[in-house]
Design a protein around this nucleic acid. Structure first.
Lengths: 353, 353
DNA sequence: TTGTAGGCGTTATCAT
DNA sequence: ATGATAACGCCTACAA
């Protein structure tokens, strides 16, 4: 048996100990009822005498009683917590997605654990494991790559909703129509009479990036144009150089499709150093619609994704999964993208090549 | 007593039930040892026979055993989870701060619950309550206003580190030198020969905003210049109008200090509509150094705050608080800001007024 | 309607 | 070094 300090007074308690929080029994004692009655009064007060219920609530309030979620979770065998595992909270797209998830979770009565993998496989593995040990009620996962392994969660029977980047055999999936968006964007560049569009993308093991690259490629192929693809690692130090090298090469592009807004920044940096202007010397269109898109000169043309709504949709699927019958097959929700033409993708009538 | 389904076989378990996870007793049975030995082998294996320890680990691995953090927390009377309560994850400053906290937390072995209050008092209250019930080991709090009430956490003896916005009587505090930063920024504008700088700030109950406003005001007062202050609510719909109204008024400013990067976007919007250019027609300098600062034309002058480092510092203070003697008085860490002059704050030699 | 008491899975004490 | 076992705080089946 444990040797607890005498609970009688301050005698056995060291001064440095945090104050012991009131428990159900304390409330019960104060209200002169049993713990069962307190528990019932505080949860489903239907089956409890209103008079007693009031007495209980008064006592609870007076003592500053706060239910211990740990004990409750143990007894209920489940938490009211979700894990949100994503690759890079700095990317405004994921920031918005996170807001959507958090917002909806809060509405459904869940708290959310944020795990930022920084696109690192090791961290992702650690986090999936941590989430499983925390016995989260569910998880929204943006996998690092197509070989990410969510089995730590799945084996534990924890529902997982995958967001943004496909991951097979992993339950539900919410994403935007990446391929179609890339097709639209590339066709837009061509309709503006750009003839050598480049696709600035991410490593090929990033599913969504790869789909966008393919959408781009399909269009340039169909038009008999060369595919100019540049896959920039997430952790590259010399990102701007890669674009500048591209511009210096023999087969320099005359326009760009960037598959996320951080790459648009990279391209804009490179262009600035080369003293090239978008919407004039070169064309530029990017996936995502970051807050700054409308304050650059000229404003940035984009393929906007409903990032916040994707987060909300993921949350909705997750609650259904948690409440619902596991029998139901995996569902995929594909949100549509929106082409927003601003200035950066335009090509002036008499531009030189 | 509870009526559990017979645990013997699949007979009593409905097909829809999630798989029951292996417990310590299961590992013990498989390894032919007592639960105590398993627990010891998996935690502090010093005091256990290497042979048995190996057998335990093998059995645990084979069964896919994952310690139940809920039960562990109950027994240990404490979680390995922090709460990160902040006002707006969309603001790049807080995004970076969150990364810092999460990064450090992960290193210290903690998970972090993200609570995004959206600058709403009600949500903040709910979240503080939720964090307290979750019995988090500690919290990093960016309070909504100077009247925020963290007693839900404090009463429970949960250490709180306040970040960015001061909140008295609430333990440790990490922030950047707002007042000084604003002084520096304002003096910089004056040194560029702008004569009517305006301060685009936030409501007066936002401590940090107020300090920046005061820093600005001290400088313009000292120079006998008029103070032009515009406090834009966080949820305002017509934010750009407020700035445009300012520009249309009799006492129109010739330059701006914005106290966060989102307000810089608002001002840039307004200026665009008025066809005014920064670094030429008007001056602009902003707190924070968002990723887009260097791709606007001209690049944005800023007072940069070490957002990520503030998050890390908060995390460090928090672990010390958790591990250390509560006797130690509240500490304040003030990080210095950095004036980065780019193009937007410059005033050309022969500018017209 | 209310009370009693067992157990959720783990850790740590005590006894061996 | 190992094992049996009592809590941690809550919920709920069962008895009254």
């Amino acid at each position: 048996m444990d040797s607890e300090p005498p609970s009688g007074a301050a005698s056995g308690r060291r001064a440095v100990m945090p104050p012991r929080m009131p428990r159900l029994v304390d409330v019960a004692e104060a209200a002169q009822v049993s713990v069962a009655t307190v528990s019932r009064a505080l949860n489903d007060s239907r089956t409890v005498d209103p008079v007693l219920a009031a007495r209980v609530r008064t006592a609870a309030a007076r003592l500053g009683y706060r239910p211990n979620a740990i004990a409750r979770n143990l007894r209920r065998r489940g938490t009211r917590v979700w894990a949100l595992i994503l690759t890079n909270i700095d990317n405004p797209f994921y920031t918005a997605l996170a807001r959507g998830v958090e917002d909806a979770a809060s509405e459904f009565g869940y708290s959310v654990l944020l795990y930022n993998t920084e696109e690192e496989a090791l961290r992702e593995r650690r986090y999936l494991e941590a989430a499983a040990q925390e016995r989260v009620a569910g998880a929204v996962l943006v996998p690092r790559a197509n070989n990410s392994d969510a089995s730590a969660l799945l084996d534990a029977g924890i529902p997982v909703v995958v967001a943004d980047r496909r991951l097979d055999g992993c339950g539900d999936f919410v994403t935007a129509a990446s391929y179609e968006g890339a097709v639209t964007a590339t066709e837009h560049l061509l309709s503006e009479r750009w003839r050598r569009p480049a696709c600035i993308s991410r490593p090929a093991d990033t599913p969504t990036a790869e789909q966008r690259r393919q959408g781009y490629q399909a269009v340039v192929d169909r038009h008999g144009l060369p595919a100019i693809v540049c896959q920039i690692p997430f952790h590259a130090q010399d990102r701007a150089w890669m674009v500048e090298d591209l511009l210096d090469g023999d087969d320099a592009p005359d326009s760009f499709l960037t598959i996320d807004s951080m790459l648009a920044l990279v391209v804009l940096h490179a262009l600035r150093r080369r003293r090239l202007r978008t919407g004039r010397d070169v064309g530029l269109i990017s996936f995502d619609d970051p807050a700054w898109a409308q304050v650059v000169e000229p404003p940035l043309s984009v393929v906007a994704q409903p990032a916040y709504e994707i987060g909300v949709a993921a949350a909705r699927l997750l609650v259904e999964r948690i409440r619902g019958v596991p029998g139901a097959g995996p569902r995929t929700v594909t949100m549509s993208t929106a082409l927003i033409v601003r200035g950066s993708s335009r090509r002036p009538p008499h531009a030189k090549v």
